[in-house]
Each structure stands twice: as structure tokens, then as C-alpha cells.
Simulated assay, not measured.
Amino acid sequence: MSRRVEQKKAARVVREQLARERRRQRTLWTSVIAAVALVLAGLIGWTVYQTQRSDGYTAPAAAVADDTGIASGDGPVTVDLYADFLCPACRQFEEQVGPTLDQLVDDGSITLVFHPVAILDRLSSTAYSTRAAAASGCAADGGTFHEYAAALYEQQPAEGGPGLTDEQLIEIGTGVGLDATSFGQCVQDGTYHSWPEHVTEQASRAGVTGTPTVLVAGERVTNSADAIVAAVEAAG
């Protein structure tokens, strides 16, 4: 009788050990599956983010290779100008330094790449920075980006308000020679509305923290005509 009891006890111990092992295995596999699921979810989320943030935009055909700006001229030294159409300091820069940049483009010294960022949307009730930058993309399609950008600064609205309406943006375009029908349709359809976000994101990755920002041959310079000319001569 005693031997039978001992056998039952031994069998129970074995069953308990097997049960514990099965529970351990189930816990292990559950953890592995959960970890794999998290990794897959992260990869899917990153893919969606990249698609939405980096590839989910339409850029003007005239945009530079990385779709971050519009180039003027074909000189040997590249000058990158990052500006927001709602930025008062950018308007002042256009007034004071713009003619010098125009001269450098005209005499073949530089290739000027204008990057229309939209960092001041928060200072407009209608996301004016984005709308104006998108409209400049439409102007690029018509071959008058530079003229249109200058005209936008001439009629720059005050910060904190709604900014110019789409109708006003279209009127400015026709004033610099753009076709009212094709240009107007591009603006009204918001054809390039997603483009400024891409430009702004890439500017941030490049270390641009404010506007206007000027780079000559990849190096940041002071926002003055003399400093830019000196940097261009040194780089050339």
C-alpha cells in the first residue's frame, strides 16, 4: 500500500513538472510572438510615416533634384536661400540683398536655389505660409518663380491674420505674366499644397532653424550682401 502511494506521489510530481514546463513554453512563445508583432508594427508604422512625410507630396517639375527648391541661373557656386513668404525679415532681405543675388545670377556667378519653407503657418489662420509656397510652385510651372516670389514679398500680409486669399495669390500671378487659367487652376486645386511640408522637413534636417538662412557652397553666411559676395568669390 505504501509503495502504491509513493508511485502516485511520483506520478503527480512528474505531471506537475510537465505542466510547469508547458506553461513556461507557452509564456516563452507568447513573449516571442508579442516581440515580433511589435517589431512588425514598428516597421509598418515607419513605412507609413516615410510615405506620408517624405514621399507623399507633389513637387513642381522645375524643382531641384531633391525637390526642396527652385533654381535660378547656372553659375558654378550654389547659393541656397531658405525663406518663408510670411516672414518680415525675409521681405527685408529681399529688399536689401535681393538685387545683389539677381546680379550674381545674371553675371553667371551663382546658381540660386530658393527653398520656400512654411514655418510660420501658426501665425496665420489660413496656413498662409503653406498656401503661398504652394502657389510659388504653380508659378514655377509657368517659368516665373523668381518674379512671383518677389511680388509676394511686395504684397506680404501681416502676421497674425488670414494672409492673402487664393484669389489674391492668383491676381499677383497674373500681374507677373502668368496665365490666369492654368495658374489659377493650379492654385485653387492646391496642386502643390503638400510640397512645402517636404521642403520644410528637409530644411530642418539640414539644420535650418530660422528664416532667412543663406548657405554659400553649403556653408552658412551672414545675411548681408557683402558677406554673400565675399563667400561666393572665395568659393569660386
Score class of each variant (00 low, 15 high):
177 G>W: 11
157 P>N: 06
38 L>A: 14
136 S>P: 02
157 P>A: 06
192 Y>Q: 01
59 A>T: 07
113 V>A: 10
159 E>L: 11
215 L>E: 11
51 T>M: 12
68 T>N: 07
171 E>D: 14
146 H>N: 09
199 V>G: 09
60 P>T: 11
182 S>I: 08
13 V>H: 08
227 A>W: 00
171 E>N: 04
49 Y>A: 10
235 A>D: 03
126 T>P: 02
142 G>R: 06
90 C>N: 04
194 S>L: 06
218 G>E: 09
116 P>S: 11
72 S>H: 11
181 T>G: 07
188 Q>A: 10
160 G>L: 07
129 S>T: 06
66 D>N: 14
235 A>I: 04
45 G>H: 10
188 Q>V: 01
177 G>E: 07
38 L>W: 09
22 R>L: 12
28 L>Q: 13
226 D>L: 06
103 Q>P: 02
105 V>G: 08
188 Q>H: 03
218 G>M: 07
26 R>M: 12
234 A>E: 15
135 A>F: 00
3 R>A: 15
80 D>M: 04
172 I>F: 09
122 R>W: 02
78 T>Q: 13
171 E>L: 03
180 A>C: 03
223 N>H: 01
41 A>F: 12
225 A>L: 02
100 T>L: 02
57 Y>I: 09
108 G>D: 14
1 M>V: 12
82 Y>K: 02
48 V>I: 15
94 E>K: 00
128 Y>L: 03
215 L>K: 08
185 Q>W: 01
87 C>A: 08
64 V>W: 07
147 E>N: 04
148 Y>N: 07
223 N>K: 05
166 D>P: 00
52 Q>T: 11
213 T>E: 10
37 A>K: 05
146 H>C: 00
163 G>K: 10
26 R>V: 13
177 G>H: 11
161 G>Q: 14
98 G>E: 12
25 Q>W: 14
206 A>M: 12
117 V>N: 05
115 H>N: 12
97 V>D: 13
236 G>H: 07
234 A>R: 04
97 V>A: 08
140 A>W: 05
108 G>E: 15
209 T>F: 07
23 R>N: 14
214 V>A: 02
86 L>M: 13
74 D>G: 10
60 P>S: 11
134 A>K: 04
219 E>D: 14
84 D>M: 04
179 D>L: 06
139 A>W: 11
23 R>V: 08
76 P>I: 07
4 R>P: 03
145 F>Q: 00
204 S>A: 14
175 G>M: 04
86 L>C: 01
70 I>L: 13
163 G>T: 04
83 A>T: 12
130 T>Y: 06
91 R>E: 13
95 E>Q: 13
67 D>I: 01
122 R>S: 15
24 R>A: 14
125 S>P: 05
121 D>C: 05
215 L>M: 13
99 P>T: 10
215 L>G: 03
91 R>C: 00
55 D>V: 02
167 E>P: 01
54 S>D: 15
86 L>W: 01
39 V>M: 06
76 P>W: 13
70 I>F: 04
78 T>A: 06
90 C>Q: 00
208 V>W: 07
98 G>T: 08
120 L>M: 12
135 A>S: 11
119 I>K: 03
148 Y>R: 01
62 A>V: 04
154 E>S: 07
12 R>Q: 15
130 T>D: 09
225 A>T: 08
